[in-house]
């Protein structure tokens, strides 16, 4: 069983939180201490997600080329519908103050603007058009048997590492 930690570390004294909030993807923490096997439910959602990626051909280099050449509506349809469904869901969660299955309030953090979103976004866009993959499809392509994409993934990990190494010297 999960146990609720009575006194979660406060934001002011928890430097780990600050390090993680350097990019806002890691701050939305559950304060529950869970045994590892509770993560299996995320793996199950991941399986459905991976099947969707393959069956809707989102992992295809050609679908991404069609998108960037305005020659198919497919990817615009996928992303557009996903955003609308996600936005309606979040509005419902906020409106009715829905809690997680463990009874925790759902926390949504606002992102703050920095110039990295423009520079980094452009660089990622270049990579997306070259490889036909954003990070999700990168993993799924390998699972689908395109094994050479393992090289792309290793290089993406290297790119992330180099960013971490030089980030203090980059304009943000």
């Amino acid at each position: 069983m999960s146990q609720i930690v009575d006194t979660p570390p406060t934001i002011e004294t928890n430097t780990d939180f600050e390090v993680r909030s350097l990019d806002e993807m890691c701050v939305n923490d559950s304060h529950l201490v869970e045994p590892w096997y509770h993560n299996i439910k995320y793996a199950l959602i991941g399986i459905l997600f991976g099947i969707t990626f393959i069956k809707a051909e989102i992992v295809s280099w050609f679908r991404i080329q069609e998108m960037f050449r305005f020659q198919s509506f497919h990817m615009y349809g996928v992303i557009g519908v996903a955003v609308v469904v996600g936005a309606i869901s979040i509005q419902i969660i906020k409106r009715f103050k829905i809690k997680t299955m463990y009874g925790e309030p759902i926390e949504l953090h606002n992102k703050s603007f920095n110039k990295g979103q423009i520079y980094g976004g452009l660089l990622f866009g270049f990579g997306w058009a070259i490889t036909g993959a954003c990070p999700g499809p990168l993993f799924a392509q390998i699972g689908a048997g395109f094994l050479a994409v393992g090289v792309t993934l290793l290089s993406a990990i290297a790119g992330t590492w180099v960013y971490g190494y030089v980030r203090e010297r980059l304009p943000h």
Binding site: L138, I157, G159
Partner: peptide, 13 residues
């Protein structure tokens, strides 16, 4: 291409 994905996504958050 892979390097750009990794570097760019983290730089862009």
């Amino acid at each position: 291409g892979g390097f750009l994905i990794g570097f760019g996504t983290r730089y862009g958050g």
